[in-house]
């Protein structure tokens, strides 16, 4: 709020457009930042599920590690620090069954897959292979969670 107010004052005094950025204003966030945040959040969700579902722990841990790798690669091309590890989610009012837990992971993966598809279609050419590969990986996670 303060930053926007300062920009308004400087812009008006200098005869610039109201939405012009000042030199002190931070650059806009990288468009891939939400993708990296999704990866960190999904890694935490799968790790939490792996701890509660030992019979599926190997597969869920592999998916969590894939999301870790996605977050690391996205952070590298964005030249920003990797997003902080996410909390594993709110405490449910009642303990979900294994099926409910897997279904909630599928819902989260599907939303993240769709976001990655849109990001791939909008991203510049030099980022498209990485972002597309992440979208495809999320689709395979849906398959693995069947």
């Amino acid at each position: 709020m303060l930053a926007f107010g300062a920009a308004l004052t400087v812009g008006a005094a200098g005869g610039c457009g109201l939405l012009d950025r000042t030199p002190d204003e931070p650059p806009p966030p990288d468009p891939l930042l939400p993708l990296a945040d999704d990866a960190v959040r999904l890694a935490a969700l799968h790790r939490s599920a792996a701890a509660e579902l030992p019979e599926r722990a190997a597969a869920l841990t592999a998916i969590a590690e894939a999301h870790d790798a996605h977050a690391k690669e996205l952070s590298r091309i964005m030249a920003t620090p990797a997003p902080s590890p996410a909390a594993s989610g709110s405490v449910a009012a009642s303990t979900p069954t294994a099926e409910e837990r897997i279904e909630s992971l599928r819902v989260a993966e599907k939303a993240a897959y769709e976001a990655a598809v849109q990001a791939c279609l909008r991203t510049p050419n030099h980022r498209a292979a990485l972002v597309g590969s992440i979208a495809a990986a999320r689709a395979t996670h849906l398959e693995a969670l069947k």
């Binding site: 597969a59 998916i63 894939a66 690669e73 990485l130 597309g132 590969s133 495809a136 395979t140 398959e143």
Partner: peptide, 28 residues
């Protein structure tokens, strides 16, 4: 992208049939 995704999902299914663990890879 749809073609890449289709190949990646089919590879995952084949790994499941072959009992390869893990059945997914990080970067298809």
């Amino acid at each position: 992208l749809e073609a890449l995704t289709g190949c990646a999902v089919r590879a995952t299914r084949w790994r499941r049939f072959a009992k390869i663990d893990p059945i997914t890879v990080a970067f298809p």
